[in-house]
Design a protein around this nucleic acid. Structure first.
Lengths: 215, 215, 215, 215
DNA sequence: CATGAATGAGTCTTCATTCAT
DNA sequence: AATGAATGAAGACTCATTCAT
């Protein structure tokens, strides 16, 4: 009753699926191109096999994105477990989302094509990302570091700008600048929050932050 | 030696240039496609002519974008003349930029392709947009409604998220939500700004704004 | 040691044979297509199974046609038993052959591909049809309604024109017109046949028939 | 005002058109296949050129058939000028139509695809053939050798059986047998025609003709 | 300068056929 | 025997690009 009971054929098929997905992801990342013939060659299978696994181009594209979104979404709980909500937010945005946005421009397209949630597979991906962001925001609202009336979609859209980063430049710095800008916009109004609550975040958030020392 | 002396040929050539640009813009807007043969037919010229005017696809694409960016940029001084800096900022973002981002996805591409300024024609377009945003920000800094350390690029990138709006949905509301979010992030820290400076902006910005009643 | 002893495997195999044949016939009739993969799916078996039963496309096609030709051939004795030779001829041509020719264009192709009798399986089908026609002609010669020097192949070829009928039009009327035309051509010369022998046939054959009453 | 005024480019284009048509006709005749790539190669042009001249497969097929039908139709007046109506009929059927039917199976397809006259290009071809046959029949009716109530379509359909001839066999003999059969069917009833009117035709029609012993 | 026919590389897509299980 | 995944050749079709007129 081991996994060995699975037919070798099945294993091969699964491996093919993986290889095709990997090849497609690579191609999409590298050039945005997605030629079935090319993918087949890169994956070391016949074109027919690619067609068998992914009948249409969309099926393939979405499978690729679904996989990446999954990664993106799965990391959220981990981040929240290991650090404070605001740090988790920053980390997710600058470390994870930014990287994805830059490399896989397809992801952004998915975001774009699929604003109508529930509609199709692309919608699922979008939803999943919104969920991830919602979780991060909720944790921060809980911690009092973010206003409760912030819509996850809006923040996500703002971070959509990460899409325009140039991987060859100082994308890290710019990702942080954008994240900070949005983060500031998400914060509760000063007068409403307990003094000191923001300290940590503020300190991280920007080196230029002026410490508002009260006597 | 007047301009009237321009040869008719010149006039034809200029007209061709325009027609090609128009056809390309239409095609780009409608379907995102940009087949030279199709453009030529739509413009009523031979393919060769298109090639003469725009040697490469990029040249054509960029010419189209440059034109749109121009519109976008030109409206800034007008907005600033007619209303307060913060209103001008909001108006530009939600009325002009959002509309362009949605319809002419090429604009977003320009933003993306051209982070490396000064480099090429795309760079010019990017620069022009950054300049426009800089102007808006400067006016607001002057008015004390925006922190002086805000980078135009960052804000623009944040607004890049407008690209993901769905023209068939409540894009207006969402554009405003995003603009507000960014706007909040751009504001000076409360303690730093002169009391009252934000009044107008705050009032517009959000209905939920806390009224800072002073005795 | 009865027939009941046949292994279940055998029964399955036979059933598969039938199902494949049925699926192929349906596909051929419906669209003229004959994709092995499709047939396999329609028959609910694997492609490999189709190959096992019919090693080549031709084998499959011919098996299908053979079956239909069989129907066509089997009906001849019945017709001859139930009606006069000339009526049997007309009935076979207009009711049975016409219908087959129209629906299963493959039949006609078989006729075409297989003029060389005895050559292959297609030849068998052709031969069978020639035999059927020969039987009909012989009966009519016997009855004195057809000249004895008529070749079955020739008549069959003439009826091959039924292939060109349009199932959506007045194919019945046209089938009758063609059959009548050929029938007239097959008749004995007037002077040779016993007066009156043709009466029945003539009356049926055409409303316009003039009865040559001799005083 | 010479033909030399035509641009050479035009001439080339026209030549290409011809070559493609020729290649297509050859391929159709030889194998019934009609692969654009193959045609292009055979015609010595690029695939694109073939597509430019004949946007769809049908356009190409029909152009080929139209050409052949034209030949077939054009020969009718010539035949009628040079010989008696009945000889013209026989000649057209056995010499011209048979040959075309056998070699260019496309012709038969035209017959088949286009029973609905006036409908499309295929319809035109069909019509043209019906016209040709009508002309032949009319001439024979005039001469008293054919009944006046014979429909050209019916005869043509009967001759459609020529399609099933095997070019490698005694197709000539069989074509004549079929033509004779139909011809007999087309004749006026004996009692109606002037004695002797049929002489020539009868004599030609069949060697087995009954010997008309005169005292 | 303008034209648009020609070219052909590159993709897409289907299917017959094989073969390991 | 049956299965169906894999393969890849073959044909369809598009479009960027050239070039003769």
């Amino acid at each position: 009753m081991t996994t060995g009971a699975v037919s070798p054929r099945r294993a091969d098929t699964r491996r093919n699926h993986e290889r095709i997905l990997a090849a497609a992801a690579a191609s999409l990342t590298a050039s945005g191109e997605l030629a079935f013939n090319t993918i087949a060659k890169a994956a070391g299978v016949g074109v027919g096999t690619v067609y068998r696994h992914f009948p249409t181009r969309d099926a393939l594209v979405l499978a690729v994105y679904a996989r990446e979104v999954e990664h993106l979404v799965d990391v959220v709980p981990v981040l929240l477990r290991e650090q404070s909500p605001q740090d988790a937010f920053h980390a997710w945005a600058t470390d994870h989302l930014a990287r994805y946005m830059m490399t896989k421009r397809g992801l952004a397209e998915a975001l774009h094509a699929a604003t109508k949630p529930h509609e199709d597979v692309a919608g699922k991906a979008y939803e999943a990302m919104v969920d991830a962001m919602s979780t991060l925001i909720a944790a921060n609202v809980q911690a009092g570091t973010v206003r409760p009336d912030i819509a996850a979609e809006t923040v996500l859209r703002g971070l959509g700008g990460l899409f325009f980063l140039d991987p060859r430049g100082d994308w890290r710095g710019e990702a942080e600048a954008l994240t900070d800008l949005l983060w500031r916009g998400m914060q509760p109004d000063r007068s409403e929050i307990a003094p000191g609550a923001l300290r940590g975040a503020e300190a991280r958030q920007s080196e230029r932050s002026i410490d508002p020392i009260y006597p």
